[in-house]
Structures are given as C-alpha cells and as structure tokens.
Amino acid sequence: MKIEISKMLQKKKKQILDLWMKNQLKDANLREDLMSNDELRIQSEELVDALLKKLTDENLADIESADFENVYEILSGISITRARQGFSPRETGTFVFSLKDALFETLQQELKSDPVALYDATMKVNKLIDSFGIVTFETFIKGREEVILRQTDEITEISTPVIRVWDGILALPIIGTLDSARTQVVMESLLQEIVNTSSSIAILDISGVPAVDSLVAQHLIKTVSATRLMGAECIISGIRPEIAQTVVHLGIDLSNVITKSSLSSALKHAFSVLQLEVRKKQKENYSLKNM
C-alpha cells in the first residue's frame, strides 16, 4: 500500500509546527530583540498552514506548481519585513531551512518501516524547501535593494539645494561627483528655480566636486547651454587650481563659459552684470558728531 505523504504530513501539522518552533527557539542565534517568540510562532504557523493546505502528492514533486503561489507570497512577505527589520540573510535563511529539519523528523518517524518511501519523500521535501529558500533570498535582496534605492532618491533630492543669493541671482553648490543622472537633477531643479524666481543669473559652484574629467565638464557645459536657452546666464565658480590644471591637460574647452575661482568673485561678476553696487555704509551720525 502506498502511503500518501501529503495527507500524512497534514495530519501531523501540529507536531511539525511544534518541532519547527522547538528548533528555532533552541537556536543560539535567535533574535529575540527583533521579534518576540509569539510573533515568531504566528509567522511560522501561517507558513506551515499555507504549505500543508495546498500540499498534495502531485505538487510535492513540482516546485513550480501554481498551488504554492500563496506560500511564495507569504514567504516573500516574511522575507521583506525581515530585511527591513534588520535580520541578517543567514538568520532569514535559517528560518526557512529549519522547517526542513522538522519535516524530516516527522517523515522519519512515520516512514520508519519503508526506507524507499522515506528516501523518496525526503528528496522531494528537500527540493521544495530549497526552492522556498531561494525565493526567500531573492525577496530578501529585493527588500534591501528597495532600501538602497529609496536612500539614493533621498540623497539626490537633498544634494541639490538651489539658493537665492540675491534678487535675480541663484546659486547652486554641487557637492560630490557629477554623473549624468545627477546632472539631470541639477539641471532640472536649477532651470525650474530660474523660472520660478525669474532670475537672470545662476552660479554653479563646483568647489565640492572632487574631480572634473571630460564627462563632468560636458555635463557642466550642457547645464550652461540649457540655462542660456532659457534666457539666463550661468557662471561656474569654485574652480580650484588642480581642477584648472586637469581641465587644461585634458584639453577641455571652457572658453564659452564664464568661470570664476570663487563664489564671491562670481557674485561680484553677477552684480556688475545686473548693474548693482555693494558699498560700505557711511556712518553719517558718527561723523556728524565728530565734526
């Protein structure tokens, strides 16, 4: 008589869950700081429930079966939350693989008398849980990647502050390397701010840019040209001596761009373009008293 492995496992659900929990709890690396034992039990129960409910002797051998969709969903959910909570990949992996031990132990007890069936069932369960493990890892990494992506977005956002230094003069200090994605953001926010404030002069300060190669220079020239198309003038300031050196050594032509060594000299230039004059105030009262 052939034993139906899935039915048998379903009957032993409680035992499997208990064994699994026992395995997990005795693990020295259990992260009680990140998740309480009750939570862990609820999570484990949900997974065992979902798995055993859909398990048949047919799909046991077929890891691609659509029956396991729900199981994969639950696994992904668990994996993503664990990634966010700060579990290590090993801890998350152990969570899934320790289920294997529980299942093996149960199988062994039930199929003691039939080594061939035991071997067969073990191989199948092994494969299935391995596939669960892979899904767990994939989603774990995806969860981490999402965190990285979100942070990248945040960094790009905060790294381009457009400052209104004077009526009609904007300044944008660039800090860090200027790649094409960043140039796009810089250009967009600078040009938008030019429209919003109807400023006719923009100063791009590159004192915080570690190195200028021909690609960075190209990005800078593009920004300057786009600003001109809008009808505003763009000055590049903060050209450090070593940057001037590399620019000339690389043969980059910046002759069509107004460049200044410091932000203050750029501002001075902007004032003269706008026909503004900044003067020290005469202390009239004081001089009157002394007369």
């Binding site: 796009q184 967009e188 040009l191 938008q192 429209v195 786009a226 600003t227 198309l229 809008m230 009808g231």
Partner: peptide
C-alpha cells in the same frame, strides 16, 4: 529674441 522656453524643452534641445 526667443522668450519663455520651458526648462524641459531647453534640456531636450541641448541633448
């Protein structure tokens, strides 16, 4: 004199 070019248009023209 051409006036009022939108930022997106300016960026696109340069590209």
């Amino acid at each position: 004199v051409v006036v009022g070019m939108q930022p997106a248009v300016a960026i696109t023209l340069i590209e």
